[in-house]
Each structure stands twice: as C-alpha cells, then as structure tokens.
Nucleic acid binder design. Structure first.
Length: 907
RNA sequence: GCGCGCUUAGCUCAGUUGGUAGAGCAACCCGUUUACACCGGGUAGGUCGGGGGUUCAAGUCCCUCAGCGCGCACCA
C-alpha cells in the first residue's frame, strides 16, 4: 500500500536530514565500502574529485553551494555508473583571511592585539575559532547533500599536510627553486605582511603628476606621482639616445632635496620612454619594483626612506615619521616655495591595494622567501625544465583541459607575465617556514627521512591461527619463502641498515633480507608486537581484532604503554637514520599500525579504530616519513609563515597521503576533475599544476571545470554592504536543498556568472512537489490495478519507454560533456510537461475504463518511467528522489535499497 | 595599452559540428470532472547590438564599429 505520507505536500525539511543520515550510515560515500559491499566492481575505473576546501573563516555562501552542487552531480552520476568514486572533502586554513578575522574579533571584544596575547596564545585562539568554524562548515556541506567521503576529510594545516608541505619545501630548496632574497616586495602596511603579486588589485584613481627639479643646481627635471619617495632616489635614468641629456650621462651630483642630501648619478637605460614626462626618471631603488631592477643593472645603491607603517624614515624635522601622504604635501609645498615645481597635471593612476585588508600597497625592500619560476632544474629523467614550463606544457599539451576553453588564453597570458612567487608572510597562522638560523646567520633545515617498513613472514603461530603477540614463534615454511620474496622486492632499494624486532619471526626475516642486501641488523625489543597478555596462545577470531579483544578483556599492555613504546621506537628510528643510512624496519603488523597512528599524532584512543583500517600484507613494503627539526644548539626558526596557497597547491596529492607511497595515491591520482570558480585559476589551479608537475611529474587532474560567480536577481555581486546575500542554509530551510541545487545549476553555463532569485528557487520547490505528486499517482495506480513486472506492454507504452530511453541517452551525453544546465533542464521539462502533463493525464481514462491488459501495461509503463526519471534526477535532486525511491513497491526494487547506488539507466 | 567574455521575447538566460529561433519567470484569457492550486489548458511577445563579408543557407563562421563586464600589465 502507498505510504500515507504522500497525502501531504512534500516536506524537504522533514525529509532531507533523515535521508542524509541514512546515507552516512550506509557508508556508501566511501568507495572502499562500495567495493566491499559489491556495489562497485573491484577493478572499476576510479573517478576522483578533490573538494576545493572552503576557508575556515566562517560560513558557506552561494558560491560554495554551486560548487557542491556541480561536484555532487558529477560524483553521484559516476557512482551510479559504476565508477570507484571518491570525493574527498576538506577545509583550508586560509592563513591571512582567518588571522585577520580573529584579530578583528579579539580587538572588538577584548580591545587587544595579537601582540598583547603573544604568538602561542593567539594561535590557540585561532585554533579554537577554526574548530568551531570547521564544525559549522561540515554541517552545512551535509545539509546541501554532498556525498563526499568524510572518513578522508583533510585540513590544509593538519599533521599529514604539514609533512607534505615541509617535504616539498625542502625538496625545492635543495633544487634551488626556493630561495631567500632581498627584493622589493608588495608590503601591506595595514595587514603588516608581504603579499604576492596575485593578491594585489589595481584600481584606477585620480592622481597628480608633478614635474620638478631636485634643486636649482640640478640640470634635469623629472616627473613623478609620488614625490615623497624621491628622497630615496639614487639616480636619474635617461634614454641613451636622448640628445637633451646625453652630456650628463655618467656624471654624479651631490645635492640637497627638501633638506635631504642626495647623491644622484645620471645613467642611461633603454627602458626609459623619452616621450613620457620629461624623458628622465628619478630612480628609487627601494620603493619601486621597476626601479629596483634598474638599480640592479646599474649597481646603484638602495636607500630605504619609508618604513613598514608607511611612514617616512628621513631625518629632517619636517618629514620624520610623517605618513607618506602628508610627506607628499609637505614636499610639494616646499618645491612650490622654492620655485622648483614646473608642472602639476591631473592624471589617472593605478592605486594598488591588498585584496584581503584593503591596505594601500607600499613597495619595500625586504628579505623574503621566493619560489623561482624561471630557474632551470633537472627532472629525475635528466631533462631540464622550469616551473613555468611545467605550467605551460600541461595545458598546451592537452594533458589538462580547461572548461570553458577560452580560459586557456587567460592562463597563458598570466604565465607569460609571472615573476617569482613570494611565499613568506609575516603572520602567525599557517605553516611556519621550515628553516632555522644559527647565530652566524647560517640556515639549517629539517631532515626528511624515508624509512621502509616490512612485516616478518608467516609464523608458525599464524599457521595455527593463534594470537602470538610477544610469544616467540618462528617462521613457518611459507614464512621463509615470503621473507625471500621480500628480499627480492628490496633488491634495488639500496638498504644500508636493518633494524628489527627481537622476536625470532622478525629476526629470521631480517636475516634473510640482510643476506641478500649485505647489511647489518640491530634488534630492538621496543619493536616487538603488542603484548596481548592472557590472550596469547588463544585462537584468533574473524572480524574481532586482537587489539580490540585485548582492550575488552583488559589484559597485556595498556594503550598508554603502547603509545609510550611507539614514541620511543620513533626516536630509535630517527637516531638510526641520522646519517645517510637507508633504513629498513622489520616488525609486526599491529605494532606498525600503532607506530603509524602515533606518527600521525593521533591520540591512543584511536589506536583500535586505526588498526582495523590498517592493512599490511606480508611482503608488502610501507614507507614512513619523518621530518625532524635540526638538532644543533641555539637555533631560531624563521618567524614567518607560508602563503596559504603553498599548502593548497599540494592538495590533490597531500590529501592522499603523499609523501607516503599510499595505495590511495596509486588508485586516485591524478584526479579527474577540478571544479572551482574562475577567480582562483591563478592562485590555485595554476599552482596545483606547477607543484604536482614538479613533485610527481604528473598533472593533478585532467579537466578543470570553472564555474562563475553567483549573483543576485539583478546581476549584482552578493555582498554584506548591499545586503543582497543569500545563505544557502536559509534556502535549504525555506525551499529544500534540492530546490536550491536545481536553481543553481539550471541555466548555469561554465565560466559564466549566474543570477539567482528566490522566485527561481521557489519554482524548483514546486517541482519537487510535482515529483512527489506524480509519484503518488503512480503508486495509487499500482495499488488499484496491481503491479505486474512481467506484464506485456502495448505498442503505445513501448513507444513511450523508447522515447524516454532516447532522452536518457541525451541527458547522459550532456552530463558527460559538462552541460549540466541542459541535462537538468531537459529532465525537468520531461518530467513535468511530458510525463505528468501528457502521459499521466492520458492514462487516466484508460486506467478507469480500459481492459485488464491495457491497465497492466499502463501501470508498468508509469512505474518504469517514474523509476527511470528518479534515477536521472537523482544527481540533481538527491533527497526527494531518494525519498520516493524508498516508497516504490518492494517487489519492484531489485537490489540495493538506496537510489544513490542504483545503476544509471544507460549502460 | 594587451587579452578575454557578453550583447537573442518584458526579465533571467539556453541555442553542442552553420539548416531560417527556445526554456523558466512575468503578462493576458480560460478552467477546480481528486496525483498536485506548490495545478491544468491556451494566447501574445524577438528584423538574434549596428554595419559588411563567406555560403544554396548565419544567432551560429570571418571582418569592422559600438556599449557593458572582467582579467593582466603599466611610463617614472
């Protein structure tokens, strides 16, 4: 019988949370569970999307809603098509944005600055904020129906990602691709940090161009928009062919400019435009990037006259400590008074501001860390390349395809102009630069150690299905064969040293391997298997791990003791690898899992859970990476942190466990699609391509799908000041997440901005109700006529099903070609205006008056169409379709129970 | 300055390899004989920004002009 819930209008509020909970309980968001449950074939092709991690700064906006919708459509579609589908979620620490937000909050509530709190306390506050923010964001993502694998959730600042960051930093440093240097950088006086070129916006504003002479006895007039910087001039550049100034080239003048003594050299440089201004440029090496370049070419001294607070550093009573703006006025006044000002013109100039803080950028000379994008380096193959070439080649070769493709040009254009990437920030929140300095200013780096782990071969106890633990059970015959196999596998690994558990099964294995690679063995009792106490010698139980049993029975080593032993072992391993040793560790499965958990920084409460996830076969080799801070005395770590995009740029592989050679990395990388907004193509997309190309010699993804900005119904950007923002949570509450998703995706073409209105969303809420009621009609018909799966279809019904088949193919093609806007519209249109308005309407008469055969045929046809359209609609509107699916007659539901893992209508 | 995109019905936008225009919303008229008023049936509405070209055929390709939006760069 039809569920009476259909007698009421559809209620997304009651349905959606319930369905999501069922999804989470099913475990089907995890591809591994799908394989285990027989939903996905073990050899199925993988399909992977790494979720662009939302910033931990606050709550989600409509743009996130769009991102989640498009990605969920792709993921659900691929899952239904039988792919091994992974959608990995995560959160970004968003260094500057988050720090600024928390700083403001603290300033507001406590009237304190971060310096009042101190680095440690301030970071604690940020972490607390980030934790809360994280919780909100996760629950919001769930509300929107995202079917992502929460068991793999990553954070750009967690232990694993931190290891990836430090590993890459060191590798790039060793390759000469990361360097520390004195450069004129974009300084944000408001945010008190440097920012990269990409974080600076240029805005046209009115300004003045002043033409003047430094002093009466100086022969060449110059023009500038920033007279206050001119007290830092060390040269005047003219074009080498400029007849007006030729005679002065090479001469030096000692003059006094507004009371400041200057030594100005006249130099010739091709870059000077004779047409502009006076054809002579006052060169200010310390406060202009181009002048800095000129100064380098001509070996000019650099004279800093503006400080970090955008205040003057010169020693005259009029100018000292004055803000740049005031200094400008003072200088212009003085020039006028002395009759040195020749001209004052109104022009438009570009004002550079920092994206995040809005502060006016002050170019300052600073010692910072950079990524060299033009420097040649050798790949492992010996081939020479540069980071820029890697970025360019990925798209040029078609290895990475950008949708829409016209963004290729924007991408290449950006690469052409790209300079070295300043990656150090003077903020506290983020990955601290992994470099230490000693008293003499020498740099020291953490050591990245790669250690191989291998299990002993099968033991006699194993053969007998007995828990061995710290019992001494020798290798079985099979175990010795396995040890030899392991030795073979390690032949090319250049092992120089083996440490092993002192239990005989491990030691025997170690000896066999040592013989083949000719290296020494040291045994440690710290490496022994877990002590299972009274459980030793007992039979193993399938699906009930010895570790869990040990806890349940409360016998043997406690988790605290295990944690302590694991920590000691990690120290031993570090010590054993302190030179150039390549270390192999032979030990035991469960203790290795505990070692791994401890290494990841997990608390001992998670040992059991992690052990049950931990898989390690005999002869399998795992890797363990360590980053150890330099041990020398009196070292100070660099106080700066890394640009947040540095960690983001490793996202596709750091999320899969790199630098460990994980199984997941082999299966899911390169990922398939990167779906994100076009505004971060440079910040993120390009840098992921660069870093992945550098680290893995591969692309991070084969397709980039760029979506546009979500705007209000008048096409305006949503903003706080306009008050036209929409909260996706409000939308979900008022209309349902399904309706919000449809409204976001219909009419949304890649790369183009979309407008959204409550009216549009309401239309799709009505559509959800339409689905509900059409389903009710079909279920009622089944109730009255009965459902015969094998009923013979009449020609009329056959034709309708064929038509739907054609539509299914059409929609499939649209999704495959990333035309979600078309697919969504087509299925919407078919459901409402063909299925409901025509097919159902026309069936009514026959259902009443037709003969048995006709009625049976019609009911089967209605059911088939409903089931098929629910499948086609599911990626777009997961909740309502799932809810209806659950009410279809049991006899009709073939297998899986959840629509989410049903098969797509097209093969 | 360089580059990119947009300009199609009142509004928001589709129109995939060229075959003489579509959707949603809004408007107007009619309808309540139970799946749904969160509804049904129907009507009206566009010389596809202007100009030129290629073609049997152009919203679709080429050139050009204009308006709007965006990105990058920048001469002090």
């Amino acid at each position: 019988m039809m569920d009476p819930k259909f007698l009421k209008p559809y209620s997304p509020q009651d349905t959606e949370p319930k369905i999501y909970k069922r999804y989470e309980e099913s475990g089907f968001f995890s591809p591994e569970t799908c394989v285990k449950e027989g939903i996905t074939k073990p050899d199925a092709k993988p399909f992977t999307i790494m979720m662009p991690p939302p910033n931990v700064t606050g709550i989600l906006h409509m743009g996130h809603g769009l991102m989640l919708t498009i990605e969920d459509i792709l993921i659900r579609y691929k899952r239904m098509r039988g792919f091994r589908t992974l959608w990995l979620p995560g959160i970004d620490h968003a260094a500057i944005a988050t720090q600024t937000k928390v700083e403001k909050d603290i300033q507001k509530t406590e009237k304190k600055t971060r310096h009042d709190l101190g680095r440690e306390e301030f970071l604690k506050r940020i972490e607390k904020f980030a934790d809360e923010s994280h919780e909100t964001i996760v629950s919001q993502i769930k509300t929107l129906g995202a079917s992502c694998d929460w068991s793999r959730e990553a954070y750009t600042l967690d232990e694993k990602r931190s290891l990836a960051v430090r590993t890459v930093f060191k590798k790039m440093y060793d390759d000469g691709l990361i360097y520390r240097g004195h450069r004129v950088v974009n300084w944000d006086p408001k945010g008190q940090t440097t920012v990269s070129d990409d974080e600076v916006s240029h805005e046209e504003t009115k300004g003045k161009l002043y033409t003047f002479r430094y002093s009466k006895d100086f022969p060449i007039p110059i023009a500038t928009t920033r007279p206050e910087t001119k007290v830092g001039d060390t040269a005047v550049a003219v074009h080498p062919d400029d007849a007006r100034y030729k005679e002065f080239i090479g001469k030096e003048f000692d003059i006094s400019f507004v009371g400041v003594p200057l030594r100005i050299k006249i130099i010739a440089d091709e870059e000077v435009d004779t047409e502009y201004g006076t054809g002579a440029v006052g060169v200010t090496p310390a406060h202009s990037m181009t002048d800095f370049e000129i100064a380098k070419r001509h070996n000019l001294p650099l004279k800093q006259v503006i400080n970090e607070y955008a205040k003057m550093m010169v020693d005259t009573s009029e100018l000292k400590d004055k803000k740049t703006k005031e200094a400008r006025e003072i200088i212009v006044e003085q020039l006028k008074k002395e009759g040195l000002l020749e001209k004052e013109e109104e022009i438009t100039i570009n004002l550079s501001t920092a994206d995040r803080s809005g502060g006016v950028i002050e170019p300052l000379p600073k010692l910072q860390w950079f990524v060299a994008v033009n420097k040649e380096f050798a790949r492992p193959s010996g081939e020479k390349t540069t980071l820029k070439k890697i970025m360019r080649a990925a798209v040029e070769s078609g290895a990475v395809k950008i949708i829409p493709n016209y963004f290729d040009k924007t991408y290449f254009h950006w690469i052409d102009k790209l300079g070295d990437w300043c990656i150090s920030r003077q903020i506290w929140f983020g990955h601290r630069i992994p470099v230490w300095y000693d008293e003499n200013g020498n740099t020291h780096h953490p050591k990245i150690i790669k250690v191989l782990l291998a299990r002993h071969g099968e033991s006699v106890a194993h053969t007998e299905h007995i828990i061995a633990g710290q019992l001494d059970s020798p290798l079985s015959k099979k175990g010795r064969v396995e040890a030899k196999e392991l030795a073979k596998k390690l032949e090319n690994s250049k092992i120089t040293k083996i440490i092993s558990s002192d239990l005989s099964r491990a030691e025997e294995t170690a000896r066999i391997v040592a013989e083949s690679c000719g290296c020494k063995i040291t045994t440690y009792k710290e490496l022994r298997e877990v002590d299972y106490g009274s459980l030793s010698k007992e039979k193993t139980v399938e699906g009930y791990s010895a570790l869990r049993r040990k806890i349940d029975v409360n016998t043997g080593e406690s988790l605290e003791e295990l944690e302590k032993r694991a920590k000691n072992t990690l120290e031993i391993i570090k010590k054993e690898t302190n030179s150039t040793e390549k270390l192999l560790v032979i030990g035991h499965r469960t203790f290795f899992s505990i070692l791994d958990s401890t290494h990841k920084g997990l608390s001992n409460e998670r040992f059991v859970e992690e052990r049950e996830k931990w898989k390690m076969n005999t002869t399998e080799i795992k890797t363990l990476f360590f980053v150890s801070s330099p041990q020398e005395k009196n070292l100070t770590q660099d106080p700066d942190t890394l640009d947040t995009w540095f960690s983001s740029s490793l996202w596709t592989f750091s999320t899969l466990g790199w630098p460990e050679e994980t199984e997941a990395l082999k299966i899911y990388h390169p990922t398939d699609i990167l779906e994100t907004g076009y505004e971060i193509i440079f910040f993120w997309v390009a840098r992921m391509i660069m870093m992945t190309g550098y680290v893995l010699g591969d692309v991070p993804f084969h397709t980039v799908y760029l979506h546009g900005t979500v705007r209000d119904d008048k096409g305006r950007k949503m903003s706080k000041s306009l008050g036209n923002g929409m909260d996706p949570m409000d939308i979900a509450n008022e209309f349902g997440a399904d309706a919000g998703r449809m409204a976001l995706v219909v009419g949304n073409t890649p790369g183009t901005d979309t407008n959204i209105s409550k009216q549009k969303i309401k239309g799709y809420k009505n559509f959800a109700n339409k689905i509900w009621n059409a389903s009710r009609f079909v279920l009622e018909s089944i109730d009255t006529v009965g459902f015969d799966e094998k009923a013979e279809l009449r020609e009329e019904e056959k034709k309708r099903i064929e038509e739907l088949q054609a539509l299914s193919e059409d929609i499939t093609k649209d999704i495959e070609n990333y035309r979600f806007y078309l697919a969504a519209e087509k299925i919407y249109h078919y459901f409402w205006h063909t299925f409901a308005d025509v097919i159902i309407e026309e069936s009514k008469a026959m259902l009443k008056e037709g003969d048995e055969k006709a009625r049976k045929s019609i009911v089967l046809c209605l059911y088939t169409i409903l089931a098929t359209t629910l499948k086609l609609l599911h990626p777009f509107m997961p909740f309502v379709t799932e809810e209806v699916w659950g009410s279809l007659p049991e006899s009709a539901l073939k297998t899986r129970g959840l629509l989410m893992v049903e098969e797509w209508p097209i093969e």
